[in-house]
Design a protein around this nucleic acid. Structure first.
Lengths: 205, 205
DNA sequence: TGTTAAAATGAATACAAATTCATTAATTAT
DNA sequence: ATAATTAATGAATTTGTATTCATTTTAACA
C-alpha cells in the first residue's frame, strides 16, 4: 500500500503546482480573463493535463481559495490559543494576517474579489466558500472575547464590529499595495496603527 | 433646430432606459455572466438595438458607473458646501451616501466590484474610472478639513484615514444588505454609529 | 397618402476559450 | 526487457456570447 500513498502524495504535489500557477494568473488577469491555457503554460503542463487534476475552471479556482484561506485560518487559530488577553489575541490575529498577505500578494487580490461573493452558482451546483464564512465567524468570536474582557464596547453587535475590524485592515492592505515603491516598509508595521484606530478611533481627543 | 434637440433628448431617454436595465442585470449576474441579450430583453429592446446606443459592452458598463457616481458626487458636494463645521460635513456626506445606496442597491453591488479595480484594460484602450478617483479624492479633502478643524488626528495620513472612513461605511452597508428581512430599518439610521466608531473607535473607554 | 429617412430587429457571423479525447510518452510490474 | 498500466499531450470539438448587418418597421415630411 506504500505505492498508493506515494502516488497520492505525487498527485497532491502536482495539484499544488497547478494551484500556485493559477494563483499568479488569476491575480494578474482576474478570473474571467485568465484562461486554462495560461494556467497550464505557467504550470508547465499541457492544457489537458490541468483537467486531470481539476474537474473544471471553477473547481480549480475554489480549491485555490479554500486551500489558502484554510492555511491562514489554521495558523492564526493555533497562535491565538497561546495567549489569554483579548487585545493580545487581536494583535496576533492582525500580525498574522498582515504577514500572510504581504507574503501572498497574489492571493490577496483574489481574496479581495471573493470577499463580497461568498458563493457562486454554476448550473445546478452551488459552491459555497465555507472557509470564508469560517474566517468571518472566527473574527466575530475574537470580538466577543474582547467584549467579555471589557476592552470592546458591548453596546454594538459583535458581527458589526467584526465587519469593521476586517474592513479596516483590508483597506490598510489595499493602501499599502497602492504605494510605490512596493515593499518599502513591512506591512506588519501597520499593526499598531490599525489596532489603535480600531480601538480608539481617529478622533482628535 | 428644435427637431434635433428633441431627438437628442429622446436618444438620451433611451440610453437611460438601457442603463437602468443594465444596472439590474449587472447587479444580478456580475459583469461577465450578464449577456447583452439579457440586458436588451430587460430593457425591452432587441439585442442589436443596444449597440445603437452603446459601442460595446464595456462602454455600456462604464457609462453606467460613471453616470451614477457622478450624480452621487455632485449632490454630496452641493449639500456639503452649505455647512462649515467638519463634523457636519462628514455627517452629511455619510447620510447622503447611505441614503443613495439604500435607494440604489443594485448599483451598490456594481460599485463594490469597482472599488478595487479603478481601471480596466481592453485591447489598447485604457478605461479609467475617473469619477471613482474623484470620489476618493473628495473624501480625502473632507478628512483634511477635519484635520484643520482639529477634530481628526493629524499624526495619520489623510489618505489612510479616508480609506478607513470609506471602508467602515461600505462594510456597514454590506452588513445591512446581508440582514433579512431587507429594509427592516433605514440604512441612514446607522450614520451616528458609523461616525462614532470612526471618530472614537470601538474601545470600551 | 406616398416617399424618404431613421430606428429597430434578430438571425447569422465571428471569435475566444473551456473541455474532450485519440494519440504518445513515461512508469510500473512481471 | 517487455507488456501493461498510468499520465501527459495538444489539436480538434463544443460552447457561449459579443457584435454585425440585411431586412423590416416606424416616423418624418411633402
Amino acid at each position: 500500500m506504500i505505492t498508493l500513498t506515494r502516488k497520492e502524495r505525487d498527485r497532491q504535489l502536482r495539484k499544488t503546482d497547478i494551484i500556485k500557477a493559477a494563483e499568479r494568473i488569476f491575480a494578474l488577469k482576474g478570473f474571467h480573463a485568465a484562461t486554462m491555457q495560461d494556467i497550464a503554460k505557467e504550470a508547465q503542463y499541457a492544457t489537458g493535463t490541468v483537467y486531470l487534476y481539476f474537474r473544471d475552471k471553477d473547481t480549480l479556482y475554489f480549491s485555490l481559495v479554500e486551500e489558502k484561506l484554510q492555511d491562514l485560518l489554521e495558523s492564526v487559530k493555533i497562535d491565538i490559543a497561546k495567549v489569554l488577553d483579548a487585545e493580545d489575541k487581536i494583535r496576533i490575529c492582525l500580525d498574522h494576517n498582515l504577514d500572510f498577505f504581504e507574503k501572498n500578494q497574489d492571493f490577496f487580490r483574489i481574496f479581495l474579489s471573493e470577499r463580497t461573493k461568498i458563493q457562486v452558482q454554476k448550473e445546478n451546483k452551488l459552491y459555497k466558500s465555507s472557509v470564508l464564512l469560517q474566517y468571518k465567524e472566527f473574527i466575530v468570536s475574537l470580538v466577543k472575547i474582547g467584549q467579555q474582557q471589557k476592552i470592546i464596547r458591548n453596546d454594538y453587535e459583535a458581527g458589526q464590529i467584526a465587519e469593521i475590524f476586517f474592513s479596516i485592515f483590508v483597506s490598510m492592505i489595499i493602501d499599502w499595495f497602492m504605494k510605490e515603491p512596493k515593499n518599502s516598509a513591512r506591512l506588519t508595521n501597520l499593526s499598531g496603527f490599525i489596532l489603535d484606530v480600531f480601538l480608539r478611533g481617529v478622533g482628535r481627543k
